[in-house]
Nucleic acid binder design. Structure first.
Lengths: 215, 215
DNA sequence: CCCTATATTAATTAAATGATCAATTAATAT
DNA sequence: ATATTAATTGATCATTTAATTAATATAGGG
């Protein structure tokens, strides 16, 4: 954070990773404080570059945010679609498998520091002002959600698709809340309880959600 | 918004509601844009008062936010505890009734404009930086959550309290997500589906959550 | 009726913010 | 070799921000 790299102006020798370092620093700081409360000064200081670099690489603060969100967001959705495709190829899967396929890529992000930062940003996207979040969110979410609902509909022919949509919305609520910060949940009960980690938590949500969906 | 009330300095004649009008305007604007992105200038303009009034009545921007949150937050938690007490007095209730008692006061808020503003603030509290949100959230949430978990534990003697805690956390995730903005969910599927309103949505969540809890 | 507490405005302050620009240096293409 | 493009610094800009203060006017208790 903030290490000094060079002194004078001008293009430095060799190749640099300043663009990625800005993205990484922004990801971390946006995760901690949200978009509006994070200044370009904070971000560029953490990345060890001057403020002008943000405008050089990204054009503006808001465009930087969009890049941060899309970078891991698109990968996450691709992973979800890929897992569902695998299920379809293998065949012989049920509702639990579909729910699990949706959850696993998100919980995998939770195993790295940067992934956890991204997950906090993602959770916050659902409460940020529409002007900031709506278009981005839809760009990333629309296709995967529809694809998963269609897959569930095929497995649950007795249920209207509309009902599946409603219940899948509830599943999203569960996993977003759990992933938005496990630390917090322990605080509520004064650390008397801990949430299970990863695999166990995934299976808990899968079981909970499957029971709610198939009821 | 921004109507002019008076011209000169000095205490105005009669009684005023400027304090409440500041709270109302702040509630609406904090709901729309979040804490950091809402300026005191915005709030005081909307309330039709000068900026200095915020510091006069509340001391600072952050203290104003806390008052906004606590005003309806404490009432909400009181209502939850009261409904649970009613159940206990009447006797003969089950898991569904407990879940419903937790949800009903929140969904009642959704029936008024100001209530919907508050619910957006509440949903955002779960992703705001800990420095802003942690203490407030705990102050309001701690007792009711524990009380409800204890009530559920009495009804589900086969389950460890720890398990009930985990599953109740999932229930909170569901309802927060649903209430954080129903409009958004319709957008995701290009308005092909609508979420049920109030009573129906409450019963949907009650059924979903009960199935997940009792499984 | 006077005095003090209360409520309000207008002006001001210092700090922070996002953005822009000219200057500078290295890499790359011709 | 030379010209152009890419990457970077440091300084500066106009705004916006939250907060403070002095002045002013009314309310209400003795």
């Amino acid at each position: 954070m903030g290490r000094i790299k060079r002194q004078g102006a001008g293009r430095p020798g060799g190749s640099t990773q300043n663009r990625d370092e800005i993205l990484d620093a922004a990801e971390r700081l946006f995760a901690d404080a949200g978009y509006a409360a994070t200044s370009l000064k904070d971000i560029t200081a953490a990345a060890g570059v001057t403020q002008a670099m943000v405008n050089y690489y990204f054009g503006s603060k808001i465009k930087l945010f969009q890049q941060v969100y899309l970078r891991k967001g698109e990968a996450l959705q691709q992973a979800r679609l890929a897992l569902l495709d695998e299920l379809k190829e293998r065949g012989g899967f049920d509702v639990s498998d579909v729910i699990r396929a949706y959850l696993v890529p998100a919980f995998q992000l939770q195993t790295t520091v940067a992934g956890r930062h991204y997950l906090r940003i993602q959770a916050r996207m659902h409460t940020e002002p529409d002007a900031l979040a709506y278009k981005l969110r839809q760009e990333v979410y629309d296709v995967p959600v529809r694809t998963y609902i269609a897959a569930l509909a095929a497995l649950l022919p007795d249920l209207e698709e509309r009902v599946i949509f409603i219940r899948f919305t509830e599943v999203i609520g569960i996993y977003l809340y759990i992933l938005s910060g496990a630390h917090r949940i322990e605080q509520i009960s004064e650390a008397r309880y801990m949430l299970p980690v990863n695999e166990d938590m995934i299976e808990e949500i899968v079981a909970f959600a499957t029971a709610g969906l198939k009821r």
